[in-house]
Design a protein around this nucleic acid. Structure first.
Lengths: 233, 233
DNA sequence: TCAGCCAGGATTGTTGAACAATCCGAGGTA
DNA sequence: TACCTCGGATTGTTCAACAATCCTGGCTGA
């Protein structure tokens, strides 16, 4: 999803990319690394994130760390109270329910608009293909989502929302996406979701204003059921 | 220039206000002042916000100003590009359309849940009463929303969303609320919206799953029409 | 005239150190 | 046990400085 490798700012080396200005700020880089770590489960939910530790680990100043933490707070990955250490967010069952409730609204609205406005679907088709290209992780001994599978799954859903062409709808989904990653962090793998995605795409392609939302709704409810089974509280 | 008084208690205490610990951070205080200024039109849309100027004006360090600006950026009140001064956001017509499109979805979903879940309406009734208590600003020579009128109007809509009882739905609306204020900044006054509010509340109170969304939808479309007439681009 | 270039000031991005404010946990006391 | 205190740990904020980038005005050369 965000495979932008760290430019690794050695003092003096500046590649000055020829393309669009892709120079992420130091805070963005720290936030990205921390985020991918959280998605991999390394700083587990509940772990306190101390500013001096992070500053030392990532080789930046405490100010930069604070800025990165703020980013993760607004993304819902980190919780923070005044004068207390930030912590990797722990989602309760109520959180998961609420999260999926809003996610459902956003994605269904997106499908509604796509069908109604006859929006182009090229990115959506690509996302489905990418999802199907992900290896099932060899011996499916561990019934878990792998990180690439999660990426591909959420990319499909993000592609649905993006296809609606509304910046704010997309932004809303992006704010939920981080929390969704958290909710799916250590979860059983739903082996059938690739078929789900293809069916949803087909219904969208045929502009079926009834079937497309229904399939997506069912798919989302399945995800909610799975996540709820593994959430605390 | 050192002994800075710490005037506690500024509205808008962001972090999970779970109790009496009501000390807004310096950045929150600066953001609140800047925000209310923007809502009053003082730093007009498009005005560059320079960090050193703001630091001097509000008597805080540049870091604190930067943090406050970040808050306003995520609230949609300020736009910012790397190495360029932040600016008070200027909403295009496309922005206004998109904004109202999402706002509509959020508020209609809220009404749907209120009606379905039979949610309590005390806060909603209070908001309607508060809206009706606002003076029409004497001689209606200037057909503009006054700031108190805007506050009361948005408070009503916020109360609708809050009554649905979903933290993330409320958060989504709050992210749109700032932009809505911007969209209504210099706008013609819709003299009839008090009647609208009362009718909407009545329909909600009677759990009318058809009339309540319809009235709210019409009300929102009216707002969109008004805002579009005054937006640039 | 005018497009392009160039220098230098203005502004943002980042760091480091320092101090203040607050929290947290380990003891001590009743 | 329950409560208190106290000192270390952690966050909040400031100041000062430098690096990276932008912006503006003047200059050059056709």
């Amino acid at each position: 999803m965000n495979p932008r490798p760290r430019p690794d700012r050695a003092p003096g080396s500046r590649p000055s990319a020829s393309g669009p200005g892709l120079q992420a700020s130091a805070a963005d880089r720290v936030a990205a690394q921390l985020r991918s770590g959280i998605f991999a489960g390394d700083p587990a939910p509940g772990t306190p994130l101390r500013e001096v530790d992070l500053a030392a680990r990532y080789g930046v100043s405490r100010h930069t760390v604070r800025e990165a933490l703020r980013e993760l707070v607004v993304a819902g990955l980190v919780s923070q109270d005044p004068f207390r250490s930030a912590r990797v967010r722990v989602l309760t069952r109520a959180d998961v329910r609420d999260l999926f409730g809003l996610r459902r609204v956003v994605e269904l609205e997106a499908v509604r608009r796509i069908v109604e406005d006859d929006a182009p679907l090229t990115a959506l088709e690509a996302a489905v293909a990418a999802r199907e290209a992900v290896e099932p992780d060899g011996p499916d001994d561990a019934l878990r989502y792998t990180v690439p599978e999660l990426d591909a799954d959420l990319d499909f859903h993000r592609a649905v929302v993006l296809a609606a062409g509304s910046p704010r709808l997309a932004r809303t989904f992006d704010m939920l996406a981080g929390e969704l990653r958290l909710a799916f962090l250590a979860l059983v793998h739903d082996a059938d979701d690739r078929g789900h995605h293809r069916a949803i795409l087909t219904a969208i392609r045929e502009r079926d204003a009834t079937l497309a939302p229904d399939l997506l709704d069912t798919h989302i409810r399945d995800g909610l059921r799975i996540c709820l089974a593994a959430a605390p509280d």
